[in-house]
Amino acid sequence: MTKQFTDPTLCSSDITPESSYLNRRQFMKSAVAGSSALLAAQPLVSKASDFVGVDTFMSAEESGWALQAPDVLTPFTDVSGYNNFYEFGMDKSDPARYASAMTLDPWSIRISSDGGETADIQFEDLLRAMDLQERIYRLRCVEAWSMVIPWNGFPLAELLRWLNPEGSYRFVQFRTRYTRSEMRGTRSFSSVIDWPYQEALRMDEAMNALSFIAVGLYGKSLPAQNGAPLRLVVPWKYGFKSIKSIASIHFTNRQPQTSWQSIAPHEYGFYANVNPEVDHPRWSQRYERRLPSSLFSPNRIPTRIFNGYGEYVADLYKDLDLRQYY
């Protein structure tokens, strides 16, 4: 791999730690207030103001991914309070309750490839190298609910270019952090998931302009339950593809197995593109509940192919039978 992984002139301790980087505004605030309660555990219901701001970023309007009518932003409390992050429990409220146990600093990411190269990069190094922007994306969960979220981050293509692996690879594979002692869900004896959680993209999918790495949302650093410190966001695919808390990235030529695919291959395919025409044995994919929803106005809307992003991604699949490769 390239020199970027191991710049001999710098070691990661020379660089501002990620927490100070992300925390500096809060740090100034708390310095003024003389408060040290900053590090206290996150409350059950989080407000955007509880989180520290991310670095200056290009707004969604400037980046070209603004809110599209008739979408309405899902409130921060719902985005950060209703999560699937099974490492922290099966209930939607479990991640908000327990994800704060995850050590976010230091955070290193293992980069490797079939070619045998390996390198560890520090999250703060990566963050320093990237220009942040805001993008407002729809998120469609395979469980038939959806949200509209303003993410902060950078295109996955930028990251992959920066990593610049030697040789060319057809797939990029991601793994979530797996720390048994910090992730109570992984200690459950009745869980059938083979940790760590894994996902992968075809290289052309990964390089697509839509593919995004989020390090924040609503202008704040990512809450742990949303996949801090960095996560994938691929809005034309079901939410489970958008892997959280990335601990490793692997470049490969063999199509990797993904977690859900290995648990139930007839239910979850490698591609997992949002598609109302492809049946799922658990949930009808024709409609989705746009959250927040309520009993008397369920906010049930028809699901669109590729979650409405067809003009950007349909070309990737023009030679693929989407019923067979779901």
Binding site: D78, G81, Y82, S93, W145, R289, L291, S293, L295, P298
Partner: peptide
């Protein structure tokens, strides 16, 4: 929560 239908 935000998805009361599922909860109910």
């Amino acid at each position: 929560g935000p998805d009361p239908i599922k909860q109910l």
